[in-house]
Amino acid sequence: METYLQAEALAKHFDGVAAVEDVSFVIHTKEIFGLLGPNGAGKTTTIRMLSTILAPDSGDVRIGGHSAVREGDEVRKRIGVCPQELALYPELSAFDNLVFFGRMNGLPGRAAKARARALLAETGLDDRGGEAVKKYSGGMKRRVNIAIALMNRPKLLFLDEPTVGIDPQSRNKIFETVLGLRDEGTTVLYTTHYMEEADRLCDRIGIMDRGRIIAVGTPAELKRQVGDPGKTTLEEVFLRLTGRSLRD
């Protein structure tokens, strides 16, 4: 299998406290890779380093053969980022939001509009694409949030908890979209707190805790570490590996 992303000994400290320490893993081309971990495990900091938002204190990331540290521009051409927050302009329409981010990704005006219309149709928002985003439901906003990340047809898509606080219908639509993207050749890094979601979607999973990767494997491989893969749930694996103590 071809490697599309390779993280090598990534480390990041904030005010002397290690948020991420010696994180190394690979994501293969056309794979959905789940990055799981309790709150404060370092998932979002890792994604921010992978997506060139944050510079690592040490280590490097190679995406599509380019260093995220030294060749940020090349990496940014290949990625799409859907952050945990609804990073949208609520007073403007979904269409305007999409076109704007498309233009910022270098798409010419006409191409950006065509791509925006196609994505609105794909995400089931074509009939309300002209309305201000602030009038949308939580699920609709989540779909727009994802659609923005797809404007530049990324080779690697970062989805940071894309299904938080939405109804089952919207969640199901997002699952279909992610699986469809994988089938079309997009590589996906997916974080979530919903274990059944990770089990259903991800080809492989990395579990992070206290800033480090503590396990990597397919869902079946991880389950096998703690018991019978047919009877063990991913949540049991997760709790076994990360413990039951509450996190901030």
Binding site: S51, R76, I79, P83, F101, M104
Partner: peptide, 9 residues
Amino acid sequence: TLERLVTTQ
């Protein structure tokens, strides 16, 4: 949105 913008070009 600002963070998102710097992941574009």
